[in-house]
Design a protein around this nucleic acid. Structure first.
Length: 580
RNA sequence: GGUUCCGUGGUGUAGGGGUUAACACGUCUGCCUGUCACGCAGAAGAUCGCGGGUUCAAAUCUCGUCGGAACCGCCA
């Protein structure tokens, strides 16, 4: 038996009546009624009400002090049962109390209310914040989630293998965190942005199914849904497998994971598959929220020769919404205001009235032929409203249409808030024209196998080449990225040449992979889930930092431990670093 | 790197060119034998982030700066 307790604060019930018990924990609250005092004693497992009859025992005891008490488990009177806590039918009447650890009398915040406190204060006193059961529970769930994923992957025959944390910097992708080498003057280690190269090397090493709950490091700015510095991926790779095989794993693991830890229904069966280009047209984004039933259509051809100048020669997209033609003008004005807020000049729309006549700012520019074309194309009916989004630039019109679709869905509350709806975005273009350089560049993952292999690279317009590469999107959040990898050195070289790299570049930057592939490598496929972001959704939080025990703030600092910090002159000298 | 918002006792907020800067929670003191967000009475606690400017007068207006958050860039 422990010196400190016979039981935890979360487990005593009526079946323990009359037992002599010892409990230890944090003092949550003290309610002093004169002759009788109640102390809520909290530990990791729960809260138990302690009854004190001698106020001398509470000397020095205040909120958040750590105490040990011994007493007898007593049944509460019917009218004093507290249904809010597991132990609410009993209480412990104590005869001794020992103060194990004192506390400052004035706390930086009330532990139970810590979620309402500004984040910088919470993080400065994170240890207090984490005592809050609501905050505490997230970390427990995180632990269980990691355990679940590990078990699930092992059940599926995947082998967990650790890949290096001290590795080499690669110029592509995100900024690396770099670590100076003591033994190699002027050289640096880098923390991995992802285990990408190593997991592919594992495939070349003959391991069949690899996974890892992998820490990843990127020296990039954070967001509410993106951790600064470090985050975790469920990373996996499988040999002798194609895209269908890994998609099956996705459809097995992720819904099970969301069902286990989420509070919402999860879509059953196969995920809907949407080719990238179709997603961009229908939803205006590569991470659509399918709970929103609205879809975007292209009606450019109707307006090729229109009298309405903003639409003439432009790309025109439209969103049909049924049964809203009778909304008041003010409602439509709010939509117009939203359009302006995203830098659209305005938004045109037509409403279909009871007599099938049209009403709206755009109507006077339409010919009967146009009207017929729109009716057919959009499936308009009485009560429908068709919103138009136009611009000469394809990326702008696509983005704006997507934003309008989302706003209409939100405004009309069309979404099922009790659902996690997954889909695959497939058929990713291999290349795109970089906005920065104007040259051909990889759109996503350069290690993906171009569909059609060498032949496609030789014969096709690069912008027409697709990859067996996919994302898993849930409720408009990109959770997973996966792809069939390029395991053929000669194809790899060709694929990189299109993006302006030489064989020498590949040899110097990705020497390990290039060399390994030269000695035979099974065809392989893999994907990675952003665990923190998935947890954020499962915990219904709107900030990823709520899923991590000790997150860095947006400025990349941990104000509790003082990270990052300065190092000694000696450390600098040994690692050949000179500050200036 | 950029944009926007925020910064007022320990915490969360209100207020707003002028006198004791308000409220809730917390803290302290006293009362109370059944509360569980206990209650009641009282007290302490803030140069309103920092610096400059305008003004007879700045916590308030203004400029700058620092800090935080959200978004854009960035995140193959």
């Amino acid at each position: 038996m422990s010196t400190y307790r016979t039981n935890t604060c979360g487990e005593l019930t009526l079946k323990d009546l009359d037992k002599k018990v010892t409990l230890s924990g944090f003092v949550s609250t003290i309610r002093d009624h004169g002759g009788v005092m109640f102390v809520d004693l909290r530990d990791h497992y729960g809260t138990t009400q302690i009854v004190v009859h001698d106020d001398a025992m509470l000397k020095g005891v205040s909120k958040e002090t750590v105490i040990k008490v011994t007493g007898v488990v007593v049944k509460r009177d019917e009218e004093t049962i507290n249904k809010k806590i597991e132990t609410g039918e009993i209480e412990v009447v104590i005869d001794s109390l020992e103060l194990l650890s004192d506390t400052a009398k004035v706390l930086p915040f009330e532990v139970d209310e810590s979620k309402k406190v500004s984040e910088d204060v919470r993080l400065k006193y994170r240890f207090l914040d984490l005592r809050n059961p609501k905050v505490h529970e997230n970390i427990i769930t995180r632990s269980k989630a990691f355990n679940f994923l590990r078990n699930k992957m092992q059940e599926l025959g995947f082998l967990e293998i650790q890949t290096p944390i001290l590795t080499s910097s690669s110029p592509e992708g995100a900024r690396d965190f770099i670590i100076p080498s003591r033994k190699h003057k002027g050289k640096f280690y880098a923390l991995p942005q992802a285990p990408q190269q190593f997991k592919q090397l594992l495939m070349a090493s003959g391991f069949d199914k690899y996974f890892q709950l992998a820490p990843c490091f990127r020296d990039e700015d954070g967001r509410a849904d993106r951790l600064v510095g470090e985050f975790y991926q469920l990373d996996m790779e499988m040999a002798f497998a194609d895209q269908e095989d890994i998609m099956k794993v996705a459809e097995d693991v992720f819904p099970a994971f969301f069902k286990e830890f989420g509070k919402r229904r999860v879509t059953k069966g196969h995920f809907k598959r949407i080719p990238y280009n179709e997603a961009m047209l229908k939803y205006g984004t590569d991470k659509p929220d399918l709970r929103n039933p609205l879809e975007i259509i292209d009606v450019s051809e109707v307006f090729t020769n229109t009298e309405f100048k903003p639409f003439r020669g432009a790309i025109v997209r439209a969103i049909k919404v049924d049964d809203i033609a009778t909304k008041p003008n003010s409602w439509f004005n709010e939509v117009v205001d939203y359009a302006k807020s995203i830098d659209m000049p305005g938004i045109g729309y037509i409403s279909i009235m009871e007599d099938k006549s049209l009403k709206g700012p755009i109507d006077k520019f339409l010919t009967d032929e146009d009207r017929n074309a729109l009716f057919n194309k959009a499936g308009l009916k009485e009560g429908s409203v068709l919103f138009f989004i136009a611009d000469k630039r394809k990326d702008v019109v696509t983005r704006n249409a997507g934003l309008i679709r989302t706003e209409l869905g939100r405004k009309l509350d069309l979404m099922d808030h009790n659902l996690f709806e997954f889909c695959f975005i497939t058929d990713m273009p291999m290349y795109e024209i970089s906005e920065v350089t104007g040259k051909l560049d990889f759109m996503h993952n350069p290690f993906s196998m171009p569909r059609g292999g060498e032949k496609a690279l030789d014969e096709k317009d690069p912008l027409e080449i697709y990859a067996d590469q996919f994302d898993v999107v849930c409720n408009g959040v990109e959770l997973v990225s996966g792809a069939v990898r390029n395991n053929r050195p000669e194809v790899l070289v060709k694929a990189f040449e299109k993006a302006g790299y030489t064989e020498e570049d590949i040899k110097s930057k990705f020497n390990a992979l290039y060399t390994a592939f030269g000695y035979g490598c099974p065809p392989h496929v893999g994907m990675a889930l952003g665990i923190d972001r998935a947890l954020m959704m499962l915990l219904e939080e709107d900030n990823v930092r709520e899923t991590v025990a000790f997150p860095l703030n947006q400025n990349g600092e941990d104000v509790l431990t003082g990270t990052p910090n300065e190092v000694t002159e000696l450390q600098l000298r040994e690692t050949h670093i000179k500050l200036r």
